Amino acid sequence: MRAAIRRGPAIVVDECEIPPPGQGQVRVRTHHCGICGSDLHAIHHFESFIDYGRRAGLLTGRIDPGRDVVLGHEFCAEIVEFGPGTERALKEGAMVGAFAVNFDEKGAEGVGWSNHYPGGYAEYMVLTESMLVPVTNGCPSERAALAEPMAVAIHAVNKADHQDSAYMVVGCGPIGLAIIAELKARGLGPVVAVDYVAERRAVAERLGADLLVDPAVGDPHDHWAGLDVPYGPVVYPRAQSRARRAVLFECVGVPGMLNRLIDAAPRNAQIIVAGVCMAPDSIEPSLAINKELEIKFSMAFSADEFRQSMHRICEGELDVSPLISRIVGLDELPATFDELLTAPRSAKVLVDPRR
Rank of each mutant, 00 (worst) to 15 (best):
Val80Leu: 07
Glu81Cys: 10
Glu81Gln: 13
Phe82Lys: 09
Ala89Tyr: 13
Gly93Tyr: 01
Ala94Cys: 04
Ala94His: 01
Met95Pro: 00
Val96Asp: 01
Ala98Cys: 10
Phe99Met: 13
Ala100Gly: 10
Val101Cys: 12
Phe103Gln: 15
Gly107Glu: 02
Gly107Ala: 07
Gly107Arg: 03
Glu109Gln: 06
Glu109Met: 11
Trp113Phe: 08
Asn115Tyr: 11
Tyr117Asn: 11
Pro118Trp: 00
Gly119Ala: 04
Gly120Ala: 03
Tyr121Cys: 06
Ala122Tyr: 04
Glu123His: 10
Tyr124Pro: 14
Met125Pro: 13
Val126Met: 13
Leu127Arg: 02
Met131Lys: 04
Met131Asn: 15
Leu132Thr: 01
Leu132Pro: 09
Val133Leu: 04
Val135Ala: 04
Gly138Lys: 01
Cys139Thr: 03
Ser141Pro: 07
Ala144His: 00
Ala144Asp: 00
Leu146Glu: 01
Glu148Asn: 04
Glu148Pro: 00
Glu148Gln: 07
Pro149Val: 14
Pro149Lys: 11
Met150Val: 15
Val152Pro: 01
Ala153Gln: 00
Ile154Ser: 00
Ile154Thr: 13
Val157Asn: 02
Asn158Leu: 08
Asn158Trp: 08
Asn158Pro: 08
Ala160Ile: 09
His162Ser: 02
Gln163Val: 14
Val169Glu: 02
Val169Asn: 00
Gly171Asp: 07
Cys172Trp: 08
Gly173Asn: 03
Gly173Leu: 13
Pro174Thr: 15
Ile175Phe: 02
Gly176Arg: 12
Gly176Gln: 12
Gly176Ala: 12
Ala178Trp: 06
Ala181Phe: 10
Leu183Phe: 03
Leu183Asn: 04
Ala185Arg: 11
Arg186Ile: 01
Gly187Tyr: 10
Pro190Phe: 06
Val192Gly: 06
Ala198Arg: 14
Glu199Lys: 10
Arg201Ile: 02
Val203Met: 06
Arg206Met: 13
Arg206Gly: 08
Gly208Lys: 06
Leu211Trp: 09
Leu212Met: 14
Leu212Phe: 12
Val213Leu: 04
Asp214His: 09
Val217Met: 05
Val217Ile: 14
Asp219Asn: 11
Pro220Gly: 04
